[in-house]
Design a protein around this nucleic acid. Structure first.
Lengths: 142, 142
DNA sequence: AATTTTAATGCAAATTTTTTGCATTAAAAG
DNA sequence: CTTTTAATGCAAAAAATTTGCATTAAAATT
């Protein structure tokens, strides 16, 4: 749960209307300590207010397009969504458990990437460098 | 195109029968300089010999399970497949162009990851660390 | 305040990618 | 030559996401 983010102004700062649904989706993502799938988000929002699955997908697209939320690819089939790095959240990588499918955020200090040389020499445009660690989480390993 | 890999013995060393189809799939993957989707692989193999799409998926599963091929997640919907690192191919990361969907292999020197601290402290099992760079490739940027 | 325009949402259906179940063929072992 | 196992094919299902079009809600304009 994030005490620093004001989701309403996060939306407004990006020129997005802060509709009920957008706020709900963003809150579910932001208040969770690990990334969630679109399906997870849908189920969670749906518990408290009526929303359509497609609306969730569309809101996620908008949030990702505006850089508020990050779309994170797993070693599985679905994308997961988490708050994009901002002044309160530094960039970090993720762990994906191939047994239970849960993603966890990794401590930024435990893993470092140096892409400076690439950024200097790459002939295209680089938008993001995603690091994902795959394996079996401590709960599933037993 | 890889001149060093003997695909037949790669299969046999893993205790896998070197069927016509398995060889075709592995050759398509190995002779390509960048990872391909299951669909790409299917279409390519199909040009020269009759094969079913499902067979391609099953062969890919077997090859991944035996560590011959790596399943690489993209910023898009489908998985891509490339030769797993071995004595002739050192581990490297990939670039994914979100416009045309092509993946490219990045020079291992241009990007370095240090996961030592994570490996020491992580309470689960770590199988692989995948680094993917997303952006727009030089062809699509024009 | 009524009307027009734009933005957000819903619903049904389609698409894409991958998986499953079961039948068939081919290869290996006995 | 027969039995067993491995590999493949085909049809259908499943999962995740996307599309098209209708509807409602909000914002802007008259």
């Amino acid at each position: 749960m994030c005490h620093h983010c004001d989701y309403k102004s996060l939306l407004e700062q990006s020129g997005l209307g802060a509709s009920e649904n957008r706020l709900s989706v963003l809150e579910v993502i932001g208040n969770n300590s690990y990334p969630l799938s679109a399906g997870d988000i849908f189920k969670t929002v749906e518990r408290h207010s009526a929303i359509n699955r497609v609306t969730v997908y569309r809101i996620l697209d908008v949030l990702v397009d505006h850089g508020i939320v990050d779309r994170i690819s797993t070693g599985g089939r679905a994308f997961y969504y988490g708050l994009a790095p901002n002044s309160h959240h530094q960039p970090h990588s993720h762990f994906y458990c191939k047994h239970c499918g849960q993603m966890d955020c990794l401590n930024p200090e435990s893993l470092s990437v140096d892409a400076n040389l690439l950024k200097k020499t790459f002939p295209g445009r680089i938008d993001k460098v995603e690091v994902r660690v795959d394996g079996i989480c401590k709960n599933c390993i037993k």
